[in-house]
């Protein structure tokens, strides 16, 4: 957001000026002292990452096996690895996840990790839910359904008009509905359609629509089947443009052009210029233009 009131800088600057009488050299150095001392570290810092990158061994996930406590330990180690994994390791992770999907202790351990991370670490919760969705297990589905049905918080931290706790849960529910849609069973699909129609969060409804379409081949038939379930004011979500990793610019641009041609109402108005305010020219432009260190 932008500092909303242009009068406050004027008043603030005046107060500062009064406060800084006798401190002209410090003021000249900038409000917080632009002539900063360099930062420092207490631990020994590292060199360039390139050596560590070269030494890294890819495609070596921890085994997602075992029962009881061993299953829990292995699951935690696997989620650690999966979080760090790179795009090229995607198929390696999928194979390991699919192989573990029939092990109820592993499925339960992933559920436990998702439940714990939901309260403590959003990024780990997303990864745990992604693994659970990829497993396509009956017990995992039950957990995903329960999570989607949890009521959104109504109190908490309001950030820029949005309730942070509600948005956080909605993002996790969106990840859960993607997993549910990936089950591709009649019962799971029925729940995805219900979510697309009636979930209280637009974030979750939009993901339900996108995931349903993707899991049914993005066909017109799927779109027709889904349309009666989608709210009237959200029918546009049925046609939303998806950028698919690996597609060419021509393919994406063709989809976008067709979308905009079908919906001329989406074209925004021309940007507006501010009137009657001139911005003072800056007197001390920041001159640092060194390139970043070689990676």
């Amino acid at each position: 957001m932008k500092g909303s009131n242009r009068r406050t800088p004027r008043l603030g600057a005046f107060v500062t000026l009064l406060g800084m009488v006798g401190s002209v050299p410090a003021f000249a150095a900038g409000p917080s002292g632009s002539a900063s001392e360099p930062p420092s570290a207490r631990q020994p810092p590292a060199g360039a990452p390139s050596a560590a990158f070269r030494a890294r061994e890819l495609h070596r996930p921890p085994a997602l096996v075992g029962s009881g406590e061993l299953a829990r330990q292995n699951t935690r180690a696997f989620i650690d690895w999966a979080g760090m994994s790179v795009a090229d390791e995607r198929e390696t992770a999928r194979r390991e996840i699919a192989a573990a999907a029939s092990n109820p202790d592993i499925v339960r351990a992933v559920i436990d990790e998702a439940r714990t991370a939901k309260e403590s670490d959003h990024s780990r919760a997303l990864v745990s839910l992604a693994i659970l969705g990829e497993m396509r297990s009956a017990e995992g589905e039950k957990f995903l359904r329960d999570l989607i049905q949890q009521p959104l918080p109504t109190t908490g931290t309001v950030v820029e008009g949005d309730l942070l706790e509600a948005t956080a849960l909605a993002q996790l529910q969106a990840k859960a509905v993607a997993g549910l849609a990936y089950r591709r069973t009649r019962d799971a699909d029925a729940e995805v359609l219900r979510v697309a129609a009636r979930h209280p969060s637009k974030i979750v409804r939009a993901e339900a629509i996108s995931a349903y379409l993707w899991n049914h081949g993005d066909t017109d038939e799927a779109r027709r089947a889904l349309a009666p379930h989608v709210r009237k004011d959200e029918q546009l979500l049925l046609e939303r443009v998806r950028r698919v990793s690996g597609e060419s610019a021509e393919t994406f641009n063709r989809k976008l052009a067709a979308y905009l041609e079908a919906h001329p109402e989406l074209l925004p108005p021309a940007p507006e210029k501010l009137s009657g305010q001139s911005r003072p020219a800056e007197q001390n432009p920041h001159r640092f233009n060194e390139p970043p260190p070689a990676h």
Partner: peptide, 13 residues
């Protein structure tokens, strides 16, 4: 999440 505050005085940043 974040905030942009424009300078008022020319010597500000």
């Amino acid at each position: 999440f974040g905030r942009f505050t424009p300078r008022f005085w020319p010597w500000d940043t």
